[in-house]
């Protein structure tokens, strides 16, 4: 098993050499063009400068990454925990489907980030308003995809399970939940992409800590290099969150067509 895994990793490295080369080339070209075109440092710093200066400010960056990460994770997880049961309730209650569902669909059209200044003014500069904004950004794609997921069991499977006389709970565990998972993950992934966006913009609007705050302050101080350091950390954070969700997806639904290789 381990041997197989090592072999698979090596193959992955070999298979992805093109993208690795591309990344190296991209940063190398960036590094060199700064001198070639004599671009001022405050407009665009060299990647090496970003790296060196960021490590000088490392304690603060780590601290802020933790804060923004916490906002993101809390908002994201809360969104999942509330959206999935609510999506279920909406799927199976005709009253909710005619009231809350159309309401949610219309709110989905509102850019949730537009609420950010309001939440900041209501709740201040702390953690809570950011968590709420991340929650809002993540909640709607998750709930709408959950409704789609739980509402689209095939007629055949629905009929089959009814003829077995199994309890609703049993049908739920053995048929409905596994059938719904792939579509649920569409929502989870979409929300994961948006979660860091929500946290960053919320920090732009009103904050005294976090990576969004850091980027804004450093841009104001003409410290483009440090602003880029913040952007890189946000990128890594976003990739990490998306990677975790993808990993869980692969573990839970290896049978799904999107996971076959």
């Amino acid at each position: 098993m381990t041997f197989k895994r090592i072999k698979a990793s090596i193959r992955w490295l070999v298979d992805s050499w093109m993208v690795i080369v591309f990344f190296i080339a991209f940063f190398l070209l960036w590094e060199l063009s700064i001198d070639w075109f004599s671009i001022p440092r405050y407009i665009l710093p060299k990647p090496s400068t970003i790296l060196v200066n960021a490590s000088a400010d490392l304690p603060r960056l780590i601290d802020y990454t933790y804060i923004t990460g916490l906002e993101t994770i809390l908002g994201y997880v809360t969104a999942i925990v509330i959206a999935i049961p609510l999506g279920l309730a909406i799927t199976f209650s005709s009253i909710l489907r005619r009231t809350i569902y159309p309401f949610f669909v219309s709110i989905e059209m509102t850019p949730k980030i537009a609420f950010a200044p309001l939440f900041i003014s209501w709740l201040g500069f702390g953690l809570l308003p950011k968590v709420i904004i991340v929650f809002l950004v993540c909640f709607f794609p998750i709930v709408l995809n959950a409704i789609l997921a739980f509402g689209s069991l095939s007629d055949e499977l629905d009929r089959f399970s009814k003829t077995t006389g199994a309890s609703i709970l049993k049908i739920f565990i053995k048929i409905r939940i596994p059938s719904a998972l792939p579509q649920c993950f569409v929502g989870f992934k979409y929300a994961a992409i948006n979660a860091t966006v929500g946290a960053t913009i919320a920090e732009f609007i009103g904050s005294d800590q976090g990576l969004g705050f850091y980027i804004q302050i450093q841009t104001g101080n003409m410290r483009t290099d440090l602003a880029f350091a913040g952007i890189f950390l946000l990128t890594i954070m976003g990739l990490l969150l998306f990677g975790i969700v993808t990993f869980v997806e692969r573990a839970l639904i290896p049978w799904h067509i999107s996971q076959r290789r």
Partner: peptide, 30 residues
């Protein structure tokens, strides 16, 4: 819905997350 029947449709009632044996067992488990 009658429980003393077996049904087959044009599209199969096999679920993609179970093996052939698992799918046959599904009838028994339910």
């Amino acid at each position: 819905p009658r429980h003393d029947i077996g049904m087959m449709f044009q599209d199969s009632t096999l679920v993609p997350w179970r093996t052939v044996l698992g799918n046959i067992n599904l009838q028994l488990e339910l």
